[in-house]
């Protein structure tokens, strides 16, 4: 898999921490591999919206990658509940169902961005940088933030 210039947290230069939420173990593993190529760290995983909320509280990640169609509680509802408690939460919806109503509903309820599956690593990488904004910095070859 392609390697990317590592994206670090601006405040302390540490790897960006991710919570990956998807009912598919396969999808979670694939996203975890991508995160590794971005220089990030997997803070936690969840297979449904309910677990995502408790895992968010436990791990306090920098970024949440959240699927939409899941059992028990769907991703948009989970995103809304997380953002209600933590307005600073950065949630990126990652779903194969990418029609406009879904995207609008997700953004209105607190998600910061939307990426359609199958995920292209280069697309997700750009979205991560955009969503982190000044809170993230891309390390150069020597490892310093730029």
């Amino acid at each position: 898999m392609e390697q990317f210039a590592p994206v670090k947290r601006s405040k302390d230069g540490q790897p960006v921490r991710y919570l990956v939420v998807d009912d598919s173990v396969f999808a979670r593993k694939n996203l975890a591999r991508m995160i590794e190529t971005f220089g990030g760290q997997l803070a936690g995983e969840a297979g449904d919206g309910m677990t995502a909320i408790t895992e968010y509280e436990r791990t306090r990640p920098d970024i949440v990658l959240m699927d939409i169609t899941m059992p028990q509680m769907e991703g948009i509802e989970a995103a809304e509940k997380i953002v209600q408690q933590h307005p600073e939460a950065r949630i990126v919806m990652v779903s194969s169902v990418g029609y406009q109503e879904n995207i609008v509903a997700a953004l209105q309820r607190g998600a910061r961005h939307f990426v359609q599956k199958p995920v292209k690593p280069e697309v997700l990488y750009e979205v991560i940088k955009y969503v982190l904004g000044e809170e993230g910095s891309v390390a150069n070859a020597a490892g310093a933030g730029v």
Partner: peptide, 10 residues
């Protein structure tokens, strides 16, 4: 299957 159906439904 999830990805194909999701994209088709979109």
């Amino acid at each position: 299957a999830n990805q194909v159906i999701g994209n088709a439904v979109t």
